[in-house]
Amino acid sequence: MDNQLIAWLLAAAQTALFVGAAPLLAGWTKRVKCHMQNRAAPAVWQPYRDLAKLFRKELVIAENASWLFRATPYVVFSAMLLAAAAIPLVAVDLPTGAIADVIVLVGFFALARFFTALAGMDIGTAFGGMGASREMTIAALAEPAMLMAVFTLSMTAASTNLSAAMGYVLDTGLVLRPSFLFALLGIAMVAVAETGRIPVDNPATHLELTMIHEAMVLEYSGRHLALIEWAGQIKLMIYAVLVVNIFWPWGIAREFTMEALGLGVAAAAAKLMLAMVILVVWETVLAKMRIFRVPEFLGFAFVLSLLGMLTHVVLETGG
């Protein structure tokens, strides 16, 4: 019983760490990006300051906004919170990991997206509708690619539970699996599209016509905007953790001792920082693509994931 309690406490602590560290990861990304592009960089703490400022600010909402518009930030944030709770960041086999497997995780993202898109349409401006329409189209194309990659992983590990999948990779050691490589590429491309990064969307854009995600949340202000921005930072971190911890779970704590957990935190931080550097390089060398090129991008991600699945079926099980 005591063990149970400790596990739940650890799970809560991990979730808090996850949610608390997400703005830091965003700050790190921005800093690296600025250095890479020879610009003066803000401090890594800047996202915290921005969030704190937004939380304090007055709320200005459009005159015809409905209750749905005001409820959406909370729904979006709680979906991301749940997703963050379910993902092993520093330790596997925590009780919150059983709340959701990978498919439920995709469901949480879909829930957040659904409400954000509705909020975009609530005011009745063209931008909101445009953002909603584009976001839902891109999501529709990203979801099969994502699930195909997930299927490849879960077929290998015989589980869709993230803890179990990571445990499987840890147990079997570093075997060069072509299916994993394909799935990794597929999931990374989906992650880029889903978190609204270049080349699919530009998180820093200020031109409404090129916006996708930003167009939907254009009308948000104050604490609503803070919750949505924070949720966006958590989402970026979720995808980063998914990629690094599924494909390189080494360092993650398998028992709940101080040393193991400390190592887990350090490993997670190092891996995430590295992953973000790769993302920044990718974002710096690529230009944003036209919206109707995105289906090709995501189609390629799907094909990669499909190849991963087929190589698994053909090569790795000897069927």
Partner: peptide, 9 residues
């Protein structure tokens, strides 16, 4: 603070 209603952008 209380919510303020305004025109949409």
């Amino acid at each position: 603070k209380p919510v303020r209603r305004a025109y949409a952008w």
